[in-house]
Design a protein around this nucleic acid. Structure first.
Length: 321
DNA sequence: ACATTAACGCGATGAGCCAC
DNA sequence: GTGGCTCATCGCGTTAATGT
């Protein structure tokens, strides 16, 4: 009986040393700053305290955690696996607090909420914009921000809590477990050129004919670009040599309209351009289709969406059913 | 060069006491 | 019971000295 009462507490109660030990907001900010800067003095500077104060904060954290959180190196410090675990959790707690801050601020200001969405170009035009239009009609005071970028950029922005949700693909170099995603659309791409472009004479333009011209492509490593490059490799055609890298659709269109440059864009984008620009730009007819990996509606795992973000997500999902 | 430790200062807080 | 005052304590910051 005596042994029983002396035994370590079980379940959740066995893992509350952080709470009982008095882990503070400052500690969370410090471990994140240490992870980002790799030095106590740099972390201290970002938190506007002296370096010894930071050192004492670290000692407190290690005392509370009951584990060594940092390796002291000749130049700076490095987080131990314990430190990394705490930093990861601390980041998520701080992000949640930021979200709570935003939600309270929305409620106080009576704006009806804010929502930040990111999307790659095609679904931005085809899905995000119509969903936003619909939402705005129902909730005119809702503040909505949209960023159009490549999946690489958007996924990182999502993890940094700068977006509530994105329509993109999870980049190969990021852990898919960090996200919750649902495939919502396939994307086909095509090549575009200005009306009257030399390649447009043929019924089916062979790829090798296009390689000699300037190209406008998304930055290296982006999915659309990789897909296009794979077509060149598969058809045994040397890759274009003169490439302008940009993720800006506007710049792409200007380049294509004002020069002999060829660009790769999604079919949805091309359709929109043809309708809107009065035929200044044409689709290059190819003998094959360019299929890009499907895109998904992606949110950060373990992050609760605000009411405004849920409304936008539902408006998007409604359009694909 | 960078981290830790020691000594100290300052402001916030709570306990104890007293007057009203 | 309430408000005002004093004082001890605590938390958290600093600088200076010391260690790696």
């Amino acid at each position: 009986m005596e042994e029983q009462t002396k035994a370590a507490p079980r379940g959740a109660a066995a893992h509350d040393s952080m709470l009982r030990g008095g882990l503070k907001f400052t500690h969370l900010r410090m471990i994140v700053a240490l992870d980002e800067h790799g030095s106590v003095s740099a972390a201290a500077e970002t938190m506007n305290v002296s370096q010894p104060a930071a050192s004492r904060t670290i000692a407190e954290m290690e005392q509370i955690a009951g584990a060594r959180l940092l390796e002291r190196l000749p130049r700076g410090v490095r987080l131990t696996p314990y430190g990394q675990a705490l930093a990861r959790r601390a980041r998520s707690i701080l992000l949640e607090l930021r979200e709570a801050d935003r939600e309270i601020s929305d409620l106080r200001s009576g704006t009806g909420g804010t929502v930040n969405i990111g999307a790659v170009t095609a679904p931005a035009i085809d899905l995000a914009v119509p969903a936003i239009r619909e939402l705005r009609a129902r909730h005119p005071r809702l503040e909505i921000s949209i960023q159009v970028e490549t999946s690489n950029v958007l996924a990182r922005e999502l993890l940094a809590s700068r977006h509530d949700l994105i329509i993109a693909r999870i980049p190969e170099d990021l852990n898919p477990r960090l996200f919750e995603s649902r495939v919502i659309g396939i994307e086909k791409a095509c090549l575009i050129a200005r009306r009257g472009h030399p390649v447009l004479g043929a019924r089916k333009v062979p790829l090798e004919k296009t390689a000699a011209f300037d190209w406008v492509l998304q930055p290296s490593g982006s999915l659309l670009r990789r897909t296009v490059e794979q077509h060149f490799i598969r058809h045994d055609v040397p890759l274009p040599e003169r490439i302008l890298n940009t993720s800006s659709l506007l710049l792409t269109l200007v380049m294509v309209a004002q020069s002999d440059a060829i660009a790769a864009v999604s079919i949805d984008v091309a359709r929109f351009i043809r309708q809107s620009l009065g035929g200044a730009i044409d689709v290059v007819p190819l003998a094959f289709e360019i299929e890009v990996q499907p895109y998904s509606l992606i949110t950060a795992r373990n992050r609760t969406l605000s009411a405004a973000a849920i409304m936008l997500r539902d408006a998007i999902l409604k359009r694909i059913r």
